[in-house]
Design a protein around this nucleic acid. Structure first.
Lengths: 339, 339
DNA sequence: TCCGACGTTCAAACCGGTTTAGTCGGCCTC
DNA sequence: GAGGCCGACTAAACCGGTTTGAACGTCGGA
C-alpha cells in the first residue's frame, strides 16, 4: 500500500510549487488556465484529495457538526425522528464532504461531551435536540463559544438560533376531530415533562380542550415509552369513568396503549379512540391503524444544518420556521360510544 | 470570546518549551516531576486541551471511526439495532475522546462516501454493517487501504476481521419450540435476500425444519418492513391451507403481521403462532406480546470498536465471536390448533 | 529607453501539535 | 582535572495543507 500522495507530490508532478497547487484547487484568481489544467490533471493522476486534517488545521475548521444524544439507546431506537433528521443533515453537509459526529451518551456525561467537543475543536458547531426545561446547554454553548442551533421552538434556546417545527396544530386538529366525533372525556398520556416538546404537547392538549369548552380529562405520565404507555392506559381504562379517547405523547406509548386496550377487551375505535404522535413506520400497520401526526424530520435536519452553517459563517442567523406537523387520521379514532 | 489557548501559551505560562509541554502531557519519560506538575497546572489554569486537528495531523490519526449506512432512513428508524450498536461503539472510543462519524446515504452513493472518507483521511477506520451478497465493500476497503471490521459472520468479509454474533441458534430454538408445540406448517417471511443476515435467517429456518424432519412451509418476501410483512401475512393467511406458525425476518414485519392476523380475525396464538427477530422495545407491548430473539447490540458495538482498534494498530486482528442471540418466547406462540 | 503595472508564480510563514537531535550542567570515574 | 555519562530540557523539523509578500517576466505608455 503506497503512501498516500500529498500536495507536494502533485506539485512536483505538475512542475509547480505547492502554493500553486493549492490555488489551482481552490479556484483562486491569478493562476493561468493552462497551469490550472496541468495541476488538476496531475492531481487526478495521483488520485489526490487534500487531507481534511491539514486543511482543517490551516482553515481553523473541523469539517464536522456534532449531535449529542443524551437518551437511553432503547428510546432512540424506537424514535423515527433521528434517522430521518440525520439523513437531512447529511444531505446538506455531505455534499461538501463534511460529516456528522454522533455522540450517544448519558445525561450525566452530556456536559463533558460538549466541553470536549469545544476544547478539542472536533466540530464546527452542534445541533441541540431534545431540549429540556432549564436546559443547561444554551448558556453552556455561549460559554464554550461553540456555535449551535436549537432544534425546537425559538424561546427554548435563549439567544441561539432556532429551527422550529410546530407540533401544536396537529395536536389541536386531533382533539378538535375527537370533539367533533362526540368525545368529551379525552385523556392525555404525557411524555416526560422535563422535555420541552413533551410539555408543549401537553399544553396544546389543555389549551385546545379549553378552547372547545371541554373538561380536561385525566393526565398520566407515559414517559414516551411503551412501558409507560401501557401502564398509563391500564390505569385509565380501569377508572370508574374511563375516557373515551386517549391522546398520547408519542406513537410508542400509543402503540402499547392499543395493545392494553385489546388485552382488556376494550374495542378500538368503538369504545376507545387513540391518537399517537410521530407517525412511526409501524403506525400504519397496527391494528387498527393508529392516528398520528407527521412532521418532516428530514426537512428539519436539512434546515437545521443550513442554519448552523449560517451561524458558523456569520455568528448568528434568523430563526427558521418550518411547516407544522400534520394530523394523520386513521382507523384508531371513531365516534364516541353512546354514553 | 478570547482566542483559544494553544500549546505555546501553556509553555510560556509554565516557563518551558512547547516540546516540554507535549512531553509532560503525554507522560513521556525525561521530564522532572516538578516540571510536569507545573505544566499541568498551567494547562489547567488556561483550560487548555490539545487540538484534535493538530494532534491528528502530527500523529496521522483522525480520531474517529466511520459508520456508513446505506438504507432508507425509515428502515433505520425502526431498527433498534443501530442506536444500541452506536452506544456500544461510543462507550469504547468516547473515553479517549474519539468520535463516530455517521453517514446516512443511498446504496448508489455509498462507494463514493467510502472513497471520500479514505481519501481525505477523515476516519481511522470503518465499521461495515448490513453486508450484502457480493458486497463490494470488503475489496474496496483493501483497495482504499482503509482499516475495516465486518459486523457479521467471518465468511462475509473476505480477509477482513469480523465480529460476529450468531443469530442461527435463536432461530433454531424458535422453530424447535414451535415443533414441540405441534406445529407442522411453519412459514417464513424473509428479509431482502440481498442482505446476508436476512439470507442467513432464511437458511437457518430451512435447515432447522430439515433437521426436525418437517416440511418447508411457504416462504414469502417481507423486506424487513411493515408493508412487506403485512402483505406477506395476508397472502399466507388466505392460502387454502394456511400455516399455523409464521417466523418473520424481523420484528417490524412480525408486528405488522400480528395486526393483519387480527384484522382477518385470526386469533394469535390460538390459531396462529408468530415469531419475530430483534427484540424491539415494542415487542413486549404488542398484543399478544411478540416472541422474538434478543442480541446484545451494545456489546456488539463495543466489540466491533475494540476490534477496529486492533486492526488499526496491528494491521489485522482475530475474529471475535460473541454469545449468540437468544430466543425470547412470549405469548404470541402457543400450541398448534387441532387440525 | 526607461518605468510602472500587471499577471503569474513561488518561497516562506503559519495553523497547533509531536518528535528528533541535540545542548547543557552536574556527577562519577580514573 | 579531563572524559564520559546521564537526566532535563529545548531548538528545529515535521505533519499537509493555506496564505502572505515578494520576485519575475512582459507589456504599454511616457
Amino acid at each position: 500500500m503506497a503512501r498516500k500522495p500529498t500536495i507536494a507530490d502533485v506539485a512536483q508532478r505538475a512542475g509547480v510549487s505547492r502554493a500553486t497547487v493549492s490555488f489551482a484547487l481552490n479556484d483562486r484568481p491569478g493562476i493561468a488556465e493552462e497551469t490550472k489544467a496541468r495541476v488538476l490533471v496531475a492531481a487526478a493522476d495521483l488520485g489526490w484529495t487534500p487531507s481534511r486534517q491539514a486543511r482543517g488545521l490551516s482553515l481553523g475548521k473541523a469539517g464536522a457538526f456534532g449531535l449529542v444524544l443524551a437518551r437511553e439507546a432503547e428510546q432512540i431506537g424506537a424514535d423515527p425522528f433521528f434517522p430521518a433528521f440525520i439523513a437531512g443533515v447529511e444531505a446538506v453537509i455531505g455534499q461538501r464532504g463534511d460529516g456528522l459526529m454522533v455522540h450517544l451518551t448519558t445525561p450525566e456525561q452530556e456536559q463533558g461531551v460538549y466541553e470536549r467537543l469545544a476544547a478539542q475543536r472536533q466540530v464546527d458547531g452542534v445541533l441541540l435536540t431534545d431540549l429540556r426545561r432549564a436546559d443547561p446547554r444554551p448558556p453552556l454553548m455561549r460559554e464554550l463559544g461553540l456555535p449551535a442551533v436549537v432544534v425546537g421552538q425559538p424561546e427554548w434556546g435563549g439567544d441561539l438560533t432556532a429551527v422550529s417545527l410546530d407540533d401544536e396544530p396537529a395536536y389541536a386538529d386531533a382533539i378538535r376531530r375527537l370533539a367533533e366525533l362526540g368525545h368529551r372525556r379525552i385523556a392525555h398520556v404525557e411524555g416526560p415533562q422535563e422535555l420541552r416538546h413533551a410539555h408543549r404537547r401537553r399544553t396544546a392538549w389543555e389549551q385546545t380542550l379549553h378552547a372547545l369548552g371541554l373538561p380536561e380529562g385525566p393526565v398520566l405520565p407515559g414517559g414516551f415509552s411503551p412501558e409507560g404507555g401501557a401502564r398509563a392506559t391500564r390505569e385509565l381504562l380501569t377508572l370508574p369513568e374511563p375516557p373515551t379517547a386517549i391522546v398520547y405523547g408519542n406513537d410508542l406509548a400509543a402503540m402499547a396503549g392499543l395493545s392494553v386496550a385489546q388485552e382488556l377487551g376494550v374495542r378500538v375505535p368503538d369504545q376507545l379512540s387513540v391518537v399517537g404522535y410521530d407517525d412511526a413506520p409501524l403506525t400504519r400497520y397496527s391494528y387498527p391503524p393508529l392516528a398520528s401526526a407527521r412532521a418532516d424530520a428530514r426537512g428539519w435536519g436539512e434546515a437545521a444544518a443550513r442554519a448552523l452553517d449560517a451561524v458558523i459563517a456569520l455568528g448568528t442567523a434568523a430563526h427558521v420556521e418550518l411547516p407544522p406537523a400534520q394530523f394523520v387520521p386513521r382507523a384508531s379514532i371513531g365516534p364516541a360510544p353512546r354514553g
